[in-house]
Computed example of a mutant assay.
Amino acid sequence: MTISLNHTIVPAVDNEAAARFLADVLGLEYGGLHPVARHFAQLRINDQLTLDYMTVPEPTGHHLAFDVDPATFDAAVAHLREHDLPHGDGPGTHTNGRVDERHPLGGRGVYFADPSGNLYELISPS
């Protein structure tokens, strides 16, 4: 049996704002509220995975890491810089404005947080 992740729930102060934030950084299209469970703002990451953002009063941030191709990585870093969004080269230094050119998992890495405290990590081959 093949196992793959179908979706995960991501807590947020404002579910739609959080989904739009990541969609903008990654160059994805935010499709709106979940068609059945309308309390989730659903962001399709790829054919297999959606992030379902749920508004909660006091969200506890999650760490979500994505492997991305070099073009997506470059576009995401450009978006972060163009919009003066804090980003950095490590989970504890995610606001230092740097990109990790020697990510421990290979290639380059960048970290950034959304307004709800979710920490995103992008990893791309060099």
Rank of each mutant, 00 (worst) to 15 (best):
residue 2 T to V: 14
residue 3 I to F: 13
residue 3 I to A: 15
residue 9 I to E: 07
residue 10 V to L: 04
residue 12 A to Y: 01
residue 12 A to M: 01
residue 13 V to D: 11
residue 15 N to Q: 09
residue 15 N to R: 13
residue 17 A to V: 09
residue 17 A to E: 10
residue 17 A to D: 08
residue 18 A to F: 04
residue 20 R to A: 02
residue 21 F to H: 08
residue 22 L to I: 15
residue 22 L to W: 09
residue 26 L to K: 01
residue 27 G to F: 01
residue 28 L to H: 06
residue 31 G to N: 14
residue 32 G to R: 01
residue 35 P to I: 11
residue 35 P to F: 11
residue 40 F to W: 05
residue 43 L to Y: 12
residue 43 L to F: 14
residue 44 R to W: 06
residue 44 R to A: 14
residue 45 I to M: 13
residue 47 D to P: 02
residue 47 D to Q: 07
residue 47 D to C: 00
residue 48 Q to S: 09
residue 48 Q to T: 07
residue 49 L to I: 07
residue 52 D to S: 03
residue 54 M to Y: 08
residue 55 T to G: 10
residue 56 V to N: 06
residue 57 P to W: 01
residue 58 E to M: 05
residue 59 P to F: 08
residue 60 T to E: 15
residue 60 T to W: 04
residue 63 H to Y: 06
residue 66 F to S: 02
residue 66 F to Q: 02
residue 66 F to M: 08
residue 68 V to W: 04
residue 72 T to W: 01
residue 72 T to A: 12
residue 73 F to V: 03
residue 78 A to Q: 01
residue 78 A to P: 00
residue 79 H to I: 01
residue 79 H to C: 06
residue 80 L to C: 01
residue 82 E to P: 01
residue 82 E to M: 05
residue 83 H to Y: 02
residue 83 H to V: 03
residue 84 D to Y: 01
residue 85 L to Y: 05
residue 86 P to Y: 03
residue 87 H to N: 00
residue 88 G to E: 00
residue 88 G to C: 00
residue 88 G to I: 01
residue 91 P to W: 13
residue 91 P to K: 11
residue 93 T to A: 11
residue 94 H to W: 09
residue 94 H to V: 06
residue 95 T to P: 00
residue 96 N to M: 04
residue 96 N to K: 02
residue 96 N to V: 06
residue 97 G to K: 07
residue 98 R to E: 13
residue 98 R to P: 03
residue 99 V to Y: 07
residue 101 E to A: 10
residue 110 V to E: 05
residue 110 V to D: 01
residue 110 V to G: 02
residue 113 A to K: 10
residue 114 D to K: 10
residue 115 P to S: 13
residue 116 S to Q: 11
residue 118 N to K: 13
residue 121 E to Y: 12
residue 122 L to I: 14
residue 123 I to S: 10
residue 124 S to C: 08
residue 124 S to F: 07
